[in-house]
């Protein structure tokens, strides 16, 4: 029974072998970035898609994870695995501290409070002086070492992050099909009715928020170890928007949405970077920004349920055939 439920994950496991055959560093690095972003969006997906709470500040948790790993390893010579753990835990603790008050806010106000938090943390990275290295950041982050394995090349890192992502996916599958997953959904649908079923909405929302911060921090730590250099610029508001974009593109409240969203956005990123200069000589990143904006707006208007929902157009008639009476 368990195997049948996880057939998508097993298929994914097989797909992951293909890059090993191609063995291209470019492919590896793209896939590593996809997995890292996807880990962030998995958590954000639980927060937004299930608990129904938005965050425009997750780049901050992502960055806090990255800086935690970077500072602990380069300034304090912590073992890398321990630093990675701290990279996940610290953002979780910060989320626990700020979440209690923040999550009382509704919709727009929550969006703006998280947005403000994101900007504030980004300023701290920039103005952190010696500790964060200011705008130029810090380099020389050592390779991640787990036991005797040092993740010192793209292939090894690829295997590591996708393995972690798979574990997280299994966990998320369990979560959304559990009592807790249903409770999260019920908060999104009607907080009032959820409370009447005995769900402590405030507590569960906070847990989802902490969970998403932990995952974002973990991803940030992995990112720091992967690129071995860190600066404030990848953790700006723009990145937070990208995370939301991935969650929305993939489809909120769907299992494959976060991964799909990360794949689409990162691939699009790469594609635009390759294609745009060919079509329009001399053009740079500006086209990408415009196209992102247009996609985001277009999706919200025409496909607010994300790309995963497109799959339903194909599946629905089939179901009807099977169950004519419904």
């Amino acid at each position: 029974m368990h195997l049948k439920n996880h057939k998508g994950l097993i298929l994914l496991l097989f797909l992951l072998v293909i890059p090993l055959k191609i063995d291209s560093n470019y492919l590896y690095s793209t896939l590593v970035i996809i997995a890292i972003y996807s880990i962030v969006v998995q958590g954000l997906g639980i927060l937004m898609g299930y608990a129904g709470q938005v965050s425009f500040g997750h780049a901050a948790f992502f960055g806090l994870g990255g800086y935690t790993a970077a500072i602990l390893t380069t300034r304090f010579q912590w073992p890398t695995l321990l630093a990675l753990l701290a990279a996940a835990i610290l953002p979780g603790i910060i989320a626990a501290i700020i979440g209690r008050q923040t999550l009382k806010l509704r919709e727009l106000y929550l969006a703006l409070a998280t947005l403000g938090f994101g900007i504030l943390v980004h300023i701290i990275f920039n103005e952190g002086g010696e500790l964060t290295g200011g705008p130029s950041g810090m380099s020389g982050i050592p390779n991640l070492t787990i036991g005797i394995i040092s993740f010192d090349n793209d292939q090894k890192f690829y295997l590591l992050v996708w393995f972690m992502l798979l574990l997280i996916l299994v966990g998320i599958y369990n979560l959304v099909h559990s009592r807790t997953g249903r409770a999260l959904c019920s908060i999104r649908e009607s907080e009032y009715a959820a409370e009447n079923a005995g769900v402590d909405c405030a507590r569960l929302k906070l847990q989802a928020f902490i969970f998403s911060a932990l995952l974002a921090g973990l991803a940030g730590g992995l990112y720091a170890f992967y690129v071995s250099f860190i600066s404030p610029s990848p953790f700006s508001f723009h990145t937070s928007v990208q995370f939301v974009l991935m969650a929305v593109i993939g489809g909120l409240g769907t299992f494959w949405g976060p991964l799909l969203g990360a794949v689409v956005v990162v691939s699009l990123n790469e594609l635009l970077r390759e294609i745009v200069p060919l079509l329009i000589p001399g053009a740079g990143g500006e086209y990408q920004i415009i196209i992102y904006g247009i996609i985001l707006v277009g999706l919200m208007i025409f496909q607010p349920k994300g790309l995963s929902s497109i799959g339903r157009y194909f599946r629905l008639p089939l179901k009807k055939e099977l169950k004519p009476e419904g």
Partner: peptide, 16 residues
């Protein structure tokens, strides 16, 4: 919230 995301999308496009 959807509207907010739309205006953020507009903001990004206009900046680009």
């Amino acid at each position: 919230l959807g509207m907010l995301i739309i205006t953020i999308g507009l903001s990004i496009s206009l900046r680009g």
